Computed example of a mutant assay.
Amino acid sequence: MASPLRTPLRTPLRSLPRTRAVLLALLLLAGALTALTATAQTARADERICDQYGSTTIQGKYVVQNNRWGTSATQCIDVTGTGFRLAQADGSVPTDGAPKSYPSVFYGCHYTNCSPGTNLPMQVSSIGSAPSSISYTYVDNAVYNASYDIWLDPTPKKDGVNRTEIMIWLNRVGPIQPIGSRVGTANVGGRSWEVWTGSNGSNDVISFIAPSAVRSMSFDVMDFVDETVARGMAQRSWYMTSVQAGFEPWQNGAGLAVDSFSASVNAGSGGGDGGGDDGGPGGEPGACEVTYTTNSWSNGFTADVGVRNTGSTAISGWEMSFALPAGQSVTNAWNATLSSSGGTVTARPVEHNRNIEPGGTQSFGFQGTHSGGTPGEPTRFTLNGTVCTVK
């Protein structure tokens, strides 16, 4: 559409009376501003993707993908600055089979499509923490799950199917169930989950199913990776290739949305050769043990953390990371400086407890709030990138 400033005038401006000329100039300026405003609004509007495997990037570090792989019916997503919304989700597939698509946002690499600046694939043994958070909008007139997809492989794979898929179902609506069969329950990241394992014919799958809908969550992805390794479905010498979050719809799905998403992977100080982690300055692989003691009341609690050096060399300077269960936050601390990001807490020593001699212990503590009931405890602590034994 032509700009109003470029539209020819039937009467030269100089031939009009001064008042009319000024008025017309103001009208033209208003039209120009309107056009500029409309252009700016268009630039800020959601990007709609209807291509089967169409994708785009948001925040300069995540990829949003339409990923309609199980149906020929139309599916479109509206991409926002922080996530996406399913604008159209036609068609349906049988609920006893695979879903029709997986519209999602991810960090890492998926079929050669890597998010900008990602440090994935990364060897599991080299990962100190992998904080992530999600916020969902759900609908009732559809059959779907809301899930994370975390991919692990023996090689640093950027294309094709990985060996093991970790799924975290935060919600499921309709007569659908995970791949395989239920093998029990597990407490991971401060929550209780049903655990299912099986194979889809291409890769192994372990699924963690929330007993009721979870609309938002902040957690450390490594809590679920550690549980997967403990169950023999992956190894610490393998690689994490991507962290994804979105929906698997079987029927309909319009209106479902990922309102916000964040993910990052923080390397420990290990060498990543599959032989274990480096315990940091003066440390050695696996040379730490943690005790975690709490005292709680209605909506608050205190925690005392003991860090023991079980290795044969001194640790000079340390950094401990752990993920607090959902609903908990730190208000103050002693004998350490604490910071939080995406649900992961990082503790750094003060001057008098920065060194831990072989067989020695240093301690710190903090006060926090919780959402009620008995506060859960972190299940995974890393010291300078090394996963510690929890006593």
Score class of each variant (00 low, 15 high):
residue 378 P to F: 14
residue 175 P to E: 01
residue 56 T to Q: 00
residue 290 V to W: 04
residue 324 L to V: 02
residue 195 V to A: 04
residue 353 N to G: 10
residue 224 F to Y: 15
residue 207 S to F: 00
residue 286 G to L: 00
residue 46 D to R: 05
residue 349 P to Q: 08
residue 185 T to F: 09
residue 371 S to Y: 01
residue 324 L to R: 01
residue 146 A to T: 01
residue 284 E to D: 09
residue 175 P to T: 02
residue 324 L to A: 02
residue 5 L to V: 13
residue 194 E to V: 03
residue 254 A to C: 10
residue 358 P to V: 09
residue 384 N to P: 03
residue 382 T to V: 14
residue 381 F to K: 05
residue 371 S to F: 02
residue 377 E to Q: 11
residue 334 W to F: 10
residue 79 V to P: 01
residue 94 P to V: 10
residue 292 Y to G: 04
residue 280 G to W: 02
residue 377 E to T: 14
residue 164 T to G: 02
residue 156 P to T: 12
residue 231 R to V: 07
residue 69 W to Q: 08
residue 43 A to Q: 09
residue 281 P to L: 04
residue 251 Q to K: 10
residue 258 V to I: 15
residue 160 G to C: 09
residue 42 T to M: 11
residue 164 T to W: 12
residue 1 M to L: 10
residue 378 P to S: 15
residue 52 Q to L: 09
residue 113 N to R: 15
residue 48 R to I: 05
residue 121 P to M: 07
residue 146 A to Y: 00
residue 256 L to N: 06
residue 59 Q to Y: 01
residue 338 L to K: 08
residue 99 P to T: 08
residue 321 S to G: 01
residue 281 P to E: 05
residue 296 S to V: 01
residue 324 L to N: 02
residue 362 Q to W: 00
residue 21 A to P: 04
residue 16 L to A: 13
residue 101 S to R: 04
residue 34 T to H: 05
residue 382 T to A: 07
residue 359 G to F: 12
residue 180 G to Q: 12
residue 94 P to Y: 11
residue 321 S to N: 04
residue 221 V to L: 00
residue 387 V to A: 13
residue 81 G to P: 01
residue 243 V to L: 12
residue 153 D to Y: 12
residue 47 E to Y: 03
residue 43 A to F: 06
residue 149 D to Y: 06
residue 208 F to C: 05
residue 54 G to H: 01
residue 109 C to K: 03
residue 33 L to R: 03
residue 32 A to D: 13
residue 193 W to F: 09
residue 32 A to R: 09
residue 135 S to Q: 15
residue 357 E to S: 15
residue 288 C to L: 07
residue 137 T to N: 12
residue 185 T to P: 09
residue 242 S to V: 11
residue 326 A to H: 06
residue 379 T to Q: 14
residue 159 D to R: 05
residue 45 A to S: 15
residue 7 T to Y: 09
residue 388 C to E: 06
residue 227 E to C: 00
residue 48 R to L: 05
residue 255 G to C: 10
residue 109 C to Y: 06
residue 235 Q to E: 14
residue 358 P to K: 11
residue 36 L to I: 10
residue 383 L to M: 14
residue 71 T to R: 06
residue 13 L to W: 04
